[in-house]
């Protein structure tokens, strides 16, 4: 599965594509099953240069019932920096975010993550 992400042009905030709009939370992002749909969305996103900068697709996987980005870098983008737990999206701390954070820290020792792969 894939999710389409970018940074907002005006604010720089991490955003996720959902049916032509951009959502702030990772869990509100649209998940693409087929490569073709994902590629089509990417092309559409690239047509919005005044909304976002450098859209790209990331791999996501189901871990213990939660969708999470495969790459560790993408988990940090979806959460926020690990040295300031009160900064970034993790600050809102809803159930989805907490699940992602928990999976992220436990996965670190299992080696089940890709650090920077998008």
């Amino acid at each position: 599965m894939k999710v389409l992400t970018a940074n907002s042009l005006t604010t720089g905030e991490v955003v996720f594509w959902n049916a032509g709009r951009w959502a702030v939370a990772f869990n509100d992002g649209q998940r693409f099953d087929g490569d073709e749909d994902a590629a089509g969305a990417l092309t559409a996103a690239e047509d919005q240069p005044r909304m976002v900068v450098a859209p790209y697709l990331i791999d996501v996987e189901d871990m213990d019932g939660h969708w999470v980005p495969v790459a560790y870098r993408e988990r940090l983008r979806a959460l926020g920096p690990s040295n300031h737990p009160q900064h970034g999206k993790q600050a809102d701390g809803d159930a989805d975010v907490q699940a992602l954070a928990a999976v992220t820290s436990s996965a670190r020792s299992t080696g089940r993550i890709k650090l920077i792969r998008r």
Partner: peptide, 17 residues
């Protein structure tokens, strides 16, 4: 634009500019 903002110290990083 990127080289222009960079010359003014503005990077786009993981979470923000």
């Amino acid at each position: 634009f990127k080289p222009l903002r960079l010359m003014n110290g503005l990077y786009l990083q993981l979470h923000a500019y």
